[in-house]
Amino acid sequence: MIIVTGASGKLGGAAVRALLETVPAERVGVLARSAEKVADLAAAGVRVHVGDYEDPASLKAAFAGADGLLFVSGSDVTPGVRERQHGNVVRAAAEAGVGHVVYTSAVGADRPDAPGFLADHTVTEGLLRDSGLPVTPLRNSFYSDSFVNPAVVGAAIEAGETVAADGGRPLNTATIADLARAAAVVVAGGPGEHAGRAYELRGPLWTYDELAATIAAESGRPVTHRRIPLDEAGDLAFLGGLISSGLFAEPSDDLAALLGRPATGMPELVRAALA
């Protein structure tokens, strides 16, 4: 049995759907806070466990007998929350004797000075290592879908520009669909193939200048990029700081290798957004 947590979320839900392409539904279970939100998965034959990261008993019950666990990181980045919740998940997995834990970590989690909420992943990877369980961290980049989507592309065409405090650095973002499919590949592959490894899951590098040029070329409308300093970025200053630091400038072929094809790039997303 393979259990996927966070199945009502975008990444977890996409991972379950990818998993069902190769694994029989009766071998797949999900953990969700609401059965109603995963009714489609139940209808497909997937076993549904209702529970959450704040309820250790529900976690242990859901993980009982699991050969594999796709542990999708919590979404609440309030300081201290993920550390507590993730600790509950790791302890429950250890008590249940889960055969292999695949954790959706983040780029930079291997650094002792990981900034801000990314440090939660550093802590969780440490908890997993100390648990003695076979573990595979997936160090996901930020979602390309947040940077390139119909709303962003439409706004850029309307304004004739993209605006970001990017420092001229490239980004290695990846799509939710690609990250979900890679996670499904790893958890279905089992510990023999993947335990003890950490995958750096990143898409092809792109820059905001390339994004603006691609939007212009594909739409036939003039679009340029305007680079702004961090002190003008407002609520996005933290993200701009991460990009400017080069955190998202490091390439990796791990995602493409797991997918068995090139990861989805920015030009494909622009064309999809315009379509």
Rank of each mutant, 00 (worst) to 15 (best):
S105K: 12
H121W: 08
G99W: 04
L138P: 06
D113H: 11
E83D: 15
V148S: 01
F142V: 13
D145E: 12
R139D: 12
F142H: 04
R91K: 15
S131E: 03
H86W: 05
P137Y: 06
V98P: 10
S105P: 03
H100D: 08
Y143S: 14
R84G: 06
E125Y: 06
N140V: 11
V135F: 14
L138M: 00
S105M: 09
F147W: 13
R129A: 03
S105G: 13
R139S: 00
F117Y: 15
V102I: 12
R84S: 14
A114W: 05
E125K: 08
R82M: 15
R139W: 03
F117G: 07
D145L: 06
D120N: 15
D130H: 00
Y143K: 04
V148Y: 11
V81D: 00
Y103H: 11
P79M: 12
L118Y: 06
T78I: 00
D130C: 07
N88P: 03
N140P: 11
V89T: 10
Y103C: 01
H121P: 09
V123D: 01
A119D: 15
V81P: 00
Q85Y: 11
H100C: 02
A109I: 09
G132L: 11
Q85L: 15
R139L: 04
T78E: 13
L133D: 07
D145N: 13
P137M: 02
A119Q: 12
L127P: 00
Y143R: 07
H121D: 10
T136K: 00
L127F: 11
T136W: 03
A94M: 11
N140M: 13
V135S: 13
A109V: 10
A94L: 01
L133H: 12
A114H: 04
D145K: 07
D130G: 11
P112T: 11
D120W: 06
Q85I: 08
R139H: 09
E125G: 02
P137N: 05
H86S: 12
T136V: 01
V102W: 01
S146V: 14
T136D: 01
A92K: 07
S146D: 15
F142Q: 13
F147T: 12
L118V: 15
V148F: 08
V90S: 04
R91A: 15
L118A: 07
V107T: 14
R91E: 15
P137S: 03
V90P: 05
F142C: 05
D120M: 10
V98S: 02
G99S: 01
A92W: 11
G97A: 01
